[in-house]
Design a binder for these strands. Structure first.
Lengths: 203, 203, 203, 203
DNA sequence: CATGAATGAGAGTTCATTCAT
DNA sequence: GATGAATGAACTCTCATTCAT
């Protein structure tokens, strides 16, 4: 392993260090609430150093969103192996929620955090997100085609299921479950997932 | 009515003036985008004046959260008049979503923004929220009691319905509907609400 | 004298304080070399205070240029009283140079300092400068009309005289007379002025 | 020619490379607008490399001033060939102005920029400048000796001519010709030069 | 010889906040 | 009760400069 590759690795490590700190902070205080200084302090470097790795604040944000989208994809995509569309759909849902529970910061970044206005329509991240979403909709479509539902309104079915899953995860991620005792929350989520699956069966 | 009470009234009016302006601005520019100065300019007072009514920016924030809870209650609570529990439940859902759509910032404040839990005002706000939530759960319970559902798991039913509604509104409020064309978004929301109602009927 | 007028006066004093410090600094280090912080330090106020009196750095600069233009006008304009155009012209030149010698900072600001790019075509300052310049050209024209010169090329005559005067003052203001012993410099300038007057007589 | 001298040569080449880039950039963006980074990028080296050749930014500045003095000398000095002193004087003036027009930044550096007087390089530069100036004065003296003027005050004649030329170039370099339409400016300068020559003839 | 990495200092600017009036 | 004046602290970002490699 040569010098070059070591340097590359170190550079990559530094970028990860920055992203890690940024992620934590963005989650806690929102995009606007976080300053480059905050990030720098968190990793114990000078603010100027950050600029050696990322052009500006929004680039850090986008890098993070891309990472998050990639992690999400990797977490969910194994379901492509499942042939039966209904089972694939259920497993997709389970994994979607599981991703949110295991990586609340990433989920937050992808689906909750208010993004800086330069919308990212043409960003890699957006493509990645769209791809996963499309796969989800196609799976619903496959279920529709295979007559798993009475309804044939693929779009609305997909959207409705997404609403439920997103709502469920969001309430966790943004700590709106305080009226339920800590130890019952996860169980409730599991039950609710089972219930929406049941409900979907009769769609 | 004495001098004291008039002064109190005037003080209250001023507080309302501030909150009103703050709300409008938060809606336009987001919480972080608004400064005390902005609020002061909007009501044509000096920044220092604000401090005569609110200790600091965060206190305005908490006052707003309380306001939001009140607005939400007023928006939803007319449904207490509906005697039939199923109809009451459906109307509750409709109004909950309607509130979120009409007051995205208030909804945001109540259900999405990460908040510190200190503050007195915040406790008032919390009580108010709990009350509305309880009423919702009781309505579900009434439906269960009246055998509107096969399932009798009130808690899970209520939670599941909330997840859907919250997911639906959140996706709007935090602008995660970009993959759907602007003009179709509301229709989709309406269809989804109809669908979850249908699904609930067969619970 | 009421409170209002006292406040106004204090405000005006503060503006003068800022302008005074700024003038000195701009001269020494050029527009780009001076920071708002520098100015603030010079007058022992905080940087933020400056912004209570001037919107930004360029506004200070423009205010200063305007002041300079006004002082220059007041210094020179008494010559309007002189009826004989030739005498008026000579006196104009003498006073122009005198202004430069007595107020090197102001002269610098008006004719040497590189200005921030937002050109000031429509600024009051520009108008003022143009007015004085026009008066100068008109005086030359009057001399031409009265056959004081053989040449009738008013524009070139005016410009040539200006070049000399500006060159003379600039060499002083920007300290390029070092090859002449300190004590002889002013005499040299006086002689040169006399010489250009002589030369003009034979134009 | 040994290794040492080759290395010296290469070092000199590098210094020239840096100065060349610096000059180009100074011309485009002004002294303050140029950073070491900019220079480094322009020559495709790292910023740190610059420091192997110049201690700091100001040293580049002084080196440039010296360069400027050399370029000026090379631009003007061919006139030594002209035997007739009057023709030599006129051509000197023409070339002086021409140098200023063609290299406004160099001219600026030499005759307008406020400079600290420390630095060795600067002394070299100063000697060079003095030499050219002396040559100019000697040429005027030659004209006086050859009775080209009625006046015999060599010093004042030289200074007066210099004032005109310097004034003319300065007004260009520091952009004080805005009241004349862009396309007429050069013509005006040419006419003014012709006029001062005429005026000198009758001195 | 050349450089990548790092930083302290500083730029312009805005903000929440205080306090004397 | 209201405010004008003031400021310390913070912001994003760039720069000149150093140093280990």
């Amino acid at each position: 392993m040569g010098i070059v590759s070591r340097k590359e690795r170190e550079k990559e490590e530094m970028r990860q260090l920055i992203l890690g700190a940024a992620l934590k902070l963005f989650r806690e205080k929102g995009y606007d609430g976080v300053s480059i200084r905050n990030i720098a302090e968190a990793i114990e470097y000078s603010p100027a150093t950050i600029y050696l790795y990322y052009k500006d604040k929004s680039e850090i944000f986008f890098a993070l969103q891309y990472e998050a989208a990639a992690v999400k994809r990797d977490h969910i995509m194994p379901v492509v192996e499942i042939e039966n569309p209904w089972e694939r759909l259920v497993e997709f849902g389970r994994r979607y929620i599981d991703f949110g529970m295991k990586h609340p910061d990433l989920y937050d970044l992808l689906f909750i955090t208010l993004t800086p206005m330069e919308s990212m329509e043409n960003q890699e991240c957006w493509k990645l997100g769209i791809a996963t979403h499309s796969f989800f909709v196609e799976t619903v479509q496959a279920c529709v085609d295979a007559r798993y539902f009475k309804s044939t309104d693929t779009e609305t079915i997909a959207y409705t299921l997404w609403c439920h899953a997103h709502g469920l995860v969001s309430l966790f991620v943004r700590e709106r479950m305080r009226m339920y005792p800590e130890e019952k929350r996860e169980e409730l989520a599991r039950k609710s997932f089972a219930m929406i699956v049941k409900m979907a069966e009769n769609l």
